[in-house]
C-alpha cells in the first residue's frame, strides 16, 4: 500500500507554489514534512488528500486516484491546522460540534479514544473555537488525527502553541498509536529539533520543490560540521558539497553533506562535529540569509 503523487504542479493566480513534486509515502512510517514558512507544506498536504485540486499531476492510493474517490478518501485523514479567527466560519462553532462532525465522517472513529484524549488534554469542548487558544486548537487537530484511525493520517503543525508538557504528551501518544496500529503519519512541523527523533523519514520542501526525501538517520549521518582555520577547512572539504559557510576572522565553519563513499580529510587540523536534523535543515534551506 502506498500513496503516490506524481509531477504535482500547483499555481495560484499565476504564481507557482509547487513545482513538479513527486513522492511516494509508504505504509507504516512516520514522515516529517519540513520546510520554511511559505514553502508549500499545507498546499502539498491539501493536494495529497484531494482537498485542493492540482493544476497538473496526479495523486493515487494503491493505484486508485484519490480525487473524488470516496474509497480512497476514506483511508486518508488530513487534520488541518485550525485558526479560528473572526473571519473563519469555525469561530462560532463549538469544539464539540467539530468533533461530532468528524466522528460522523470518519468511518473508524474511535469514540473511546476521543473521550480519553479530551480528558487528558483537559479540553473544554463546550467552548467556541473562536474563543480557544492556539494550543487548544492544536489539541483538537491532534484528537481528530488520532481518533480518525485513517491508515494515512496527515497533521499540519500539530504542536503549534502547545506547551512543552503537552508536546511531549503528543509525541508519546503518536508513538503509542503508531506502535499499536502501524498507521502512516505525515507531520508537518516547524519544531524540528524535538520531532527529529520520531521521524523515520524526512521530506524537505523548499520553495515548492522537494529537495530531500529519505531516511532521517541516513540524512543526519551524512551531514557534519567542519570548523577550524579557513584554509584548513577549505582543504579538508575540497570537492565536497558544502553549505552555509560562516567565518569569523581566520576561523571558518561549514556544513558538509557527504555522498556515499566521501569523507572529510581528517588529516587536516579541523574539528568535525555531528549535526542535528535542525542544523542540517538550516544549512540546506537557510542559504539566502548566509549570502
Amino acid at each position: 500500500m502506498s500513496l503516490i503523487c506524481e509531477k504535482i504542479v500547483k499555481t495560484y493566480s499565476g504564481k507557482e507554489v509547487l513545482h513538479d513534486v513527486s513522492l511516494e509515502l509508504k505504509e507504516s512510517r512516520i514522515y516529517g514534512l519540513i520546510g520554511r514558512n511559505g514553502a508549500g507544506k499545507t498546499t502539498l498536504l491539501s493536494i495529497l488528500t484531494a482537498q485542493n485540486p492540482t493544476t497538473s499531476g496526479t495523486v493515487s492510493l494503491d493505484g486508485q486516484p484519490v480525487w473524488e474517490n470516496r474509497r480512497s478518501l476514506a483511508r486518508l485523514c488530513f487534520s488541518r491546522e485550525l485558526n479560528a479567527n473572526a473571519e473563519s466560519g469555525l469561530a462560532a462553532m463549538k469544539a464539540k460540534e467539530y468533533l461530532r462532525i468528524a466522528s460522523t465522517y470518519y468511518e473508524d472513529w474511535d469514540k473511546e479514544m476521543e473521550q480519553k484524549l479530551v480528558k487528558l488534554f483537559d479540553l473544554n469542548v463546550k467552548k467556541k473555537m473562536g474563543k480557544m487558544s492556539k494550543g487548544m486548537l492544536s489539541m483538537i487537530t491532534i484528537i481528530v488525527a488520532l481518533c480518525s484511525k485513517a491508515p494515512y493520517t496527515f497533521l499540519d503543525e500539530p504542536v503549534a502553541g502547545l506547551d512543552v508538557v503537552a508536546r511531549e504528551q503528543f509525541y508519546k501518544l503518536l508513538l503509542e498509536e503508531y506502535a499499536a496500529s502501524g498507521r502512516t503519519f505525515v507531520i508537518s512541523t516547524h519544531i524540528i529539533e524535538e520531532a527529529a527523533d520520531i521521524l523515520e523519514e524526512v521530506i524537505i520542501l523548499h520553495d515548492g520543490k522537494v529537495i530531500l526525501e529519505g531516511d532521517t538517520q541516513t540524512f543526519v549521518d551524512s551531514a557534519c560540521y567542519v570548523s577550524g582555520k579557513a584554509e584548513e577547512v577549505d582543504a579538508a572539504t575540497a570537492g565536497l558539497e558544502t553549505h552555509h559557510p560562516e567565518t569569523i576572522g581566520r576561523s571558518k565553519g561549514v556544513t558538509v553533506f557527504l555522498k556515499p563513499g566521501q569523507q572529510v580529510d581528517e588529516t587536516r587540523d579541523v574539528s568535525v562535529q555531528p549535526v542535528s536534523l535542525q542544523r542540517a535543515f538550516v544549512a540546506l534551506c537557510g542559504e539566502e540569509e548566509a549570502k
Binding site: 508513538l175 506502535a179 520520531i198
Partner: peptide, 17 residues
C-alpha cells in the same frame, strides 16, 4: 522496541536498529 521508542520518544525503527 515500542517501549523503548515511547520512553525516549524516538521512532521504533531507530530503537529496533
Amino acid at each position: 522496541t515500542n517501549e523503548l521508542a515511547k520512553l525516549y520518544t524516538i521512532n521504533p525503527a531507530t530503537a529496533a536498529k
